[in-house]
Design a protein around this nucleic acid. Structure first.
Lengths: 356, 356
DNA sequence: CAATCATGCTCCATCGGTTGAGCAGAAGCT
DNA sequence: AGCTTCTGCTCAACCGATGGAGCATGATTG
């Protein structure tokens, strides 16, 4: 449509104060009022054409076309702030995530975004550095954004967040680590840990003879997943009648440096090591590098969580790969159901073995 | 403050239609109107106390305390949508990012969030899967959120985004990959690639004797960084009087499968390989695993971008580690300066060598 | 004692989009 | 012709926070 075709303006320049016609060409973003003026119609008509409710509102195809064309030409984008402010639902889904520094959380973030978009929702992710204070701040921020739903991934204190959100009328879901006040979706840590432990025990038995307990390293003793994995670890030992002394169960955090220092200080590290995260594994392999080659060759380990390069390191005998797709399938299903309250769903993991 | 202390209400129940007193206890989020009613003051006073402008507006300490207490007790969080709608600046900074699946982008995302918060800004990140259409959609979405500034990381067509944003009066910055219409901040790809190539050539010379050209694999030939790295790669060869045949320069994308297939089909792969990204490296190491051990032992490689486990693989002789902190320092400085237009700043990389 | 100033608040328009209500004109029906 | 129904649109209130303007007080000054 060219300028001369514009119909008689029903909306004068002074309709909205301070908004002169020349503003239309300025660097400010065009609004539905600008488009209405350009096309010669009402802001309501423009809004309904642009948000898809125009058929319901009996706007003619002809007017719709003209509005769409003008919107296209002027690079119109809706102001979400204004839109959400008026509507009762924002269609924004939030996710809080501890870190972006490993494949598991990275995949969670990417797939969450993809799925949210597919469902016509706007994803907003923020990472909280495993810091409870930041988690709470992030949750508040998400509420400020008027999220319709909040997914708390690997949160250290999910119940606190659930309470905060419930007070604001926002439902939450706990992913990867469970809470007691909202639905929780997590991997079957016990089974996967038991199976991984079996694999490491098998490798040690094959290469060095059996009977010796493995070492468990990484994680926090107050963390549900660590507890489950310790449980699976001990179960696999019990099956073979091997008892594990306390000093081999080390859960002093996920940080690589902690693991490395612990191993360096330790008098005799067992041949087999169960590493509770890829982040901890970084510390373990760093320690390994500091050993004499013949000593390093006497080590076998496996880790919870998968990494493509970690999987190729020589002494690695297996990695637990969490099923991100399945976790997110369940998450979105639960979100759509609107399920609330303390439920828990477990998703099986895959065990990735060396390909050689 | 307990209920009986509430002063005479100057704001009756009917002040804002449909908002009954009982609503205060419902699951809807409290607004400044609710707090005003509870405390017995005006919404303006509440707003100014909560956003910190109360001293300037001459609100008494006593009233401020009462408002803050009520806000605390009722879990008030500001409605950003409403706040941003009214203000001229949103304090929201957007970042678009190709992927979350490697350490470089993961670190970029984490540090961006941290720095933005430190600067009192709200970070919003979205990932675009290296898809130009998604990049544009993501940029539009960011405009919808009223971002004050948009950082385009590794965008395939940054100029298009700059145009879109400029039309909306939003400044942009190109990070990691340059554009021609906004400031660009990126690593010194040429120098780092040349140095890495030297290291790989040295390793090959030491282990297998010199004179043979390396292979370059990964990336896209239309991508600025790939061109710079090819340039540095060729420069290091030229220094030693080695010429590189065209069939050893392979830039058919970053995907691991592509690299693997190419290597599988290739008649005689050189001993030394320059791998243009950690994602491509996944394909290379996968191929390596399929070789006979004695053949695999004849390979040396280095890669652009760093990965903690990749660095420990036996044939790896060096990794270029981009300086994420420095890149983001410059980014935030440039953002604050308000610099516009086609400028380019280069940041040196670190070269990580095997520690053994 | 009047004039001036500082203090401590409130009023109201506003940001941009959405939505229920309503209105004019055309078409259809009896 | 008089009635209803349908079509195609517009009006105006509203979402929640913000900030300029303004209005009572009480204190200070000439």
């Amino acid at each position: 449509m060219i300028a001369s075709e514009i119909e008689a303006c029903q909306y004068g320049d002074e309709q909205r104060k301070g908004r002169a016609v020349s503003d239309t060409n300025s660097s400010k973003r065009p609004t539905i009022y600008d488009l209405a003026e350009l096309v010669g119609t009402s802001p309501t008509a423009v809004s309904s054409v642009l948000n898809g409710s125009w058929k319901k509102r009996r706007i003619s195809q002809k007017l719709a076309d003209r509005v769409l064309k003008a919107a296209q030409e002027h690079g119109y984008t809706v102001n979400i702030q204004a839109s959400v402010l008026r509507r009762d639902r924002s269609n924004i889904v939030g996710m809080i995530l501890p870190k972006y520094d490993n494949r598991f959380f990275g995949a969670m973030a990417e797939q969450f975004e993809t799925r949210a978009r597919e469902a016509g929702l706007f994803p907003v992710i923020t990472c909280t550095q495993r810091d409870p204070a930041l988690e709470l701040q992030a949750a508040r921020e998400m509420l400020s954004y008027q999220v319709d739903y909040l997914i708390c991934t690997g949160a250290t204190d999910p119940d606190q967040i659930t309470d905060l959100c419930r007070a604001a009328g926002v439902k939450t879901l706990n992913l990867d680590l469970p809470g007691t006040k909202a639905p929780s979706i997590l991997s079957d840590n016990f089974t996967a840990a038991r199976d991984l432990t079996r694999v490491i025990l098998d490798a040690c038995e094959r290469d060095f003879g059996g009977g010796a307990p493995l070492m468990f390293i990484g994680g926090r003793s107050d963390d549900h997943n660590t507890r489950e994995r310790r449980h699976g670890f001990l179960e696999a030992h019990k099956e073979r009648g091997i008892s594990v002394p306390d000093h081999l169960m080390i859960t002093n955090g996920y940080a690589p440096e902690k693991a490395r220092e612990t191993l360096l200080k330790m008098a005799d590290v067992p041949n087999g090591i169960f590493v509770n995260s890829t982040i901890t594994l970084e510390g373990v392999v760093f320690w390994l590098r500091s050993l004499a080659p013949e000593r390093a060759a006497q080590i076998r380990y496996g880790s919870f969580d998968w990494d493509p390069f970690g999987a190729l390191l020589p002494q690695n005998v297996g990695m637990v790969r969490q099923d991100v797709s399945a976790l997110l399938d369940l998450t979105f299903r639960t979100m759509k159901d609107g399920t609330e309250g303390n439920t828990m769903q477990l998703v099986p993991c895959q065990l990735e073995m060396p390909t050689v």
